[in-house]
Design a protein around this nucleic acid. Sequence first.
DNA 1: GTCATAATGAGAATCATTGTCAATTGCGGT
DNA 2: ACCGCAATTGACAATGATTCTCATTATGAC
Lengths: 138, 138
Amino acid sequence: MNDATAPRPRMTKQRAAVLDALDQGGFRSAQSWHDLLRHDGSNIGLATVYRTLQALSESGDVDSVVTEGGETLYRRCETPEVHHHHLRCRVCGAAEDIDIPDLEEVSARIGAEHGFIELEHVVELTGVCSSCAAKAQH
Amino acid sequence: MNDATAPRPRMTKQRAAVLDALDQGGFRSAQSWHDLLRHDGSNIGLATVYRTLQALSESGDVDSVVTEGGETLYRRCETPEVHHHHLRCRVCGAAEDIDIPDLEEVSARIGAEHGFIELEHVVELTGVCSSCAAKAQH
DNA sequence: GTCATAATGAGAATCATTGTCAATTGCGGT
DNA sequence: ACCGCAATTGACAATGATTCTCATTATGAC
Ligand SMILES: [Zn+2]
Ligand SMILES: [Zn+2]
Ligand SMILES: [Zn+2]
Ligand SMILES: [Zn+2]
């Protein structure tokens, strides 16, 4: 069930830099994280940022969501061990981990009713946060 | 709240062809619908298929979902007037309209609790349907 | 039929993401 | 500390879905 083929990741300075940058919090695209890293003096390559974020995403250390525009956003996840969902502001990108009661059970039940197995679900709540809403008032 | 700037779409033969093709049912990518149309003798352009499907999607006449690979899939929606969700087979693409009890209210409540407005949600259930699961058994 | 203009199609352009591959480097073994 | 080599990196090419451009065509109101 778990991977005996687990390749332990090397601690390179680029990996460390990404990990460090992620501490700033917030959802950003791979390119945005890359920009941020370069502005901080790193000469890390874009492909490396992509690779590192993907690796971290697969290992469950970062969350990823997809915007309407098809961009994938990443951020360090505070609670890697628990499956959860997000409420994200479409304007400023601020996001919070949320719990949607019964969702897991309900989706499992619906899947079962239709004879589906290996159920997965994608749930994303988006909106405009109060501070962005305030700014929008001219 | 509604659009006084509603441009009524012209009934061109390509729009009719797309509408006709959609009757075959099922989720397909724009490119896939385009292939299908060409195989049926149409000389419709790919860009037109994209434009038409997007227009139909915005007017609520077709559903669209995004695959893991980032492709957008479209299909004629049976129940355009009601907001609903889908349970889709990741193997064969078969999909059914489903109802997730209380989801609308729960998401609205969660949004409100966090001070968010203009809430929207994306919910997609995927799995492997019974017939695909059967085939998977060697 | 005329006409304004929405719609089309071929191909170029975008843009996020992935692949290539030679050069580099972490790190286990010595 | 020193080797050796596979994992990792970075510059850049390549991809692949989607969008844009613009000259040409065709819809629908009058
Ligand atoms: Zn999270
Ligand atoms: Zn905001
Ligand atoms: Zn539907
Ligand atoms: Zn199936």
